[in-house]
């Protein structure tokens, strides 16, 4: 009985958590493209104006970033200005929660058919590498190891701390700007 009563609250909490995580990740993707050359080397291969979306099906929370050129990504907080070029879609809110709460690695979620790719698969592979690099930077190593297939052996603490601080600072600034706007 209690479980039944709590269910809507749990669902609401999950939805809010996933929505918040997408907002953080969207801003963090923009930030990492500004501070990390390796990420820019990956994103430079995307066409300029390329729109990438992660969404929970059918109309759940989403994040959208655009490649604005030279590997730089821009987070679109108000939705896509035009149809997206590549969409990675979680089939259900529960699946998104499993991944974004680091209970299931992104690669495992793909293997488990939790997500669909709509668009060029090779670019989806590239964006997955960017997401993995982001998670390796901004999450504590113990948590990151639960999120990515393999924690990068060449990512050492000083580089990680410095990059993470710069990314978090940019994310916080972006949030403040959003509130002010």
């Amino acid at each position: 009985m209690l479980v039944k009563r709590l269910q809507p609250m749990v669902s609401h909490a999950r939805r809010s958590y996933v929505g918040l995580m997408f907002q953080v990740m969207g801003r963090a993707l923009q930030a990492i493209s500004e501070v990390d050359e390796t990420t820019r080397n990956e994103t430079r291969a995307l066409p300029v104006g390329f729109l990438f979306e992660m969404q929970v099906m059918p109309n759940g929370p989403k994040l959208i970033v655009e490649h604005t050129g030279d590997g730089l990504l821009h987070y679109h907080r108000d939705g896509a200005p035009r149809p997206v070029d590549l969409s990675i879609q979680f089939k259900h809110m529960t699946h998104a929660f499993l991944v974004l709460s680091f209970q299931e690695k992104t690669s495992v979620a793909f293997a488990n058919d939790r997500m669909l790719v709509d668009g060029d698969v090779s670019l989806a592979v590239r964006m997955t590498r960017v997401l993995n690099r982001l998670e390796s930077f901004i999450l504590p190593k113990l948590v990151a190891e639960r999120a990515v297939k393999e924690y990068p052996a060449n990512l050492h603490l000083p580089e990680k701390l410095l990059s993470a601080a710069r990314i978090y600072l940019k994310v916080a600034t972006n949030f403040v700007e959003t509130v002010r706007a």
Binding site: A111, S122, A124, V125, R129, N132, V148, E150
Partner: peptide
């Protein structure tokens, strides 16, 4: 090869 879809399912990064 790095951009091939099947690399996602390789057990090692």
């Amino acid at each position: 090869a790095l951009d091939d879809g099947s690399i996602m399912f390789n057990p090692r990064e």
